[in-house]
Structure formats: structure tokens, C-alpha cells
Write a protein that binds this DNA or RNA. Sequence first.
DNA 1: ATGCAGATCGTCT
DNA 2: GACGATCTGCATC
Length: 194
Amino acid sequence: MILPREFYERDTLTVARELLGQVLVRETPEGTVRGSIVETEAYLGPRDDAAHSYKGKSERVRVQYGPAGCAYIYMIYGMHYCLNITSGPPGVPEVVLIRALEPLSGFELMEKRRGTGKLLNLCSGPGKLCRAFDIGADLYGVDLCRPGSLYLEGGNKPESISSSKRIGIDYAVMTRDMPWRFTAAGNKFLSRPG
DNA sequence: ATGCAGATCGTCT
DNA sequence: GACGATCTGCATC
């Protein structure tokens, strides 16, 4: 049931689309939470001026140069974490940002971590879902193709997929208008309408 | 419904 | 020293 590495070793735009409907699982001593991926964005390395790896190697992006199917996690605005999954051929620094999940199980634990009981607000954003899933710097580089504290298992494809411009990257003059955001069409758990 | 300020720190120039 | 692949609460229309 866990998605194999080959799933992630394909073209990153394909991976970003195919990740929709797959299920993210987080296991901790407190319990297990699950969510279906409903929103992703592709970041295409040196040919994408919105990508963290646009300018090449640095300590922060080092996991992007390793195998596909691993967690690339970074802190943003000094207070939120964002979860990405490495993709493409080995050594190619491309990733898929996980932007929203539809909660499937572990509702109480997610609500406790998020400090809200509103289901629609639990995982509808990259920072929100990391909080709900207790994803932080300690999971940097974790292999998502193996059972453990964080992994991905097969789910159901959405009925249809929409693409749109990526969010919050207007500084990227070259690629800011590229339709590299993917959403499960009409899903209610998006960070914003697709 | 739309808009803006504030929080807060790792990373890179 | 500046700036985010964000979220929240509060203000205004």
C-alpha cells in the first residue's frame, strides 16, 4: 500500500498531479492521523526561479539532491513549516509542495494540535497541515517510501484535476504564471479555490 | 467579503 | 541585514 520510490521518480509535474488523492500518514506516540492530498505545487529546480534550488546547492536544500520520495521540510516566516516531497530522477532537485489535505482520521488529535474544531480549517494550507500532523524539522529527509513516522499510501484519484498559478511566488518573474498548482476539482478542503 | 498588520527566525547576500 | 512557497485576528466595506 505504501507508494514505491518509482512513483516519485517520474516527471515532477506528473508526480504533482498523481499525488492528488494519495494518503499522507503520520504516526506519533499520541496517535495516528491521516489525510488525502487535495492540493499540490511543483517546483522545478534550476529552470524555475520560484524554486529554493533555483540557485543550486545549499545546506537547506541538500535533500533535494538525494533520492526521490523523501521529505523536504523548511521553516517559513519564522513560525510555519512546509512539507515537500522530492521527485524526479535521482540528483535532480525538484519537489512537490503539499498545500492541503482532506482529513480522514485522527480528527481529535488534529484539532488539539491546531486549536480549532473546524474541519475545513484543519489542513487547508501548507503551514496548517504541518501543524495538524506535527511535521517539523526533525522529519527533514525522512524516506516516505518506508513504514515509519511519516509515509504515503495509495488512495483514490480525484474525479477531475484543475491547474492554476502557484500561490505566493510573485517575486519569481520567469515562472510565476506557470500553471504548476494542482487541485482536486471542487474539493472543499483547498487552501483557496482552485 | 476584502484588507492589513503582526508574529518570529533560519537562510542567504 | 533583509526577506520569505504563511496564518490569524481585527478592521472596514
